Amino acid sequence: MSKNMSVVNIETINEDNRKKLEEQSFEEAVLALTEKLELANSLLKTMLETTHEFLVFGLDRDYRYLSFNNRHKEMAKDQWGADIAIGTRILDIINSNEERDNLRGFFDRVLAGEQFSSLEEYEGDSGNVIVGKNHWAPIKNSNGEIIGILCFMQDVTEHRSFIKEMLKEKNSLDQNMESLSFYDQLTGVYNRKFYEKELQRMDEEQYYPLSIIFMNINGMSKINSEYGHAVGDILMRKAVQVLKYGVRGDDVVARYEGDEFVVLMPRTEGAKVERALERFKKSLDEVKVQSIKLSVSFGFYTKYDESDNTESVIKAAQRQLERQKELDYI
Rank of each mutant, 00 (worst) to 15 (best):
Q175D: 14
S96L: 07
I163A: 02
H135I: 15
D155A: 10
S161I: 14
N171H: 14
V110R: 01
E145L: 09
D125G: 11
R100G: 02
I90W: 00
I213S: 02
G105P: 04
I94P: 02
R109N: 15
L91C: 10
F107H: 14
Q185K: 14
F152H: 01
G127A: 03
F106M: 09
S142D: 09
D184M: 07
I93C: 04
I213K: 06
T157F: 01
Y207F: 15
G127M: 09
S181L: 11
D184H: 05
L180F: 07
Q154E: 15
E120R: 05
L103P: 04
A112L: 11
D184P: 03
Y207E: 11
L167Y: 08
D108V: 02
V110E: 00
I139Y: 05
S118I: 03
Q175N: 15
F107L: 06
F162T: 09
K193E: 10
R192A: 02
I163S: 00
L111T: 09
L103I: 05
F116M: 08
S142M: 06
N218S: 11
S142K: 03
K133M: 14
G144K: 06
Q185I: 14
P209L: 09
I90G: 03
K164P: 06
F116R: 07
R89W: 02
R104Y: 00
Y195W: 13
E165P: 00
S118D: 03
L186S: 06
M202S: 07
A112F: 05
Y207P: 06
I139Q: 03
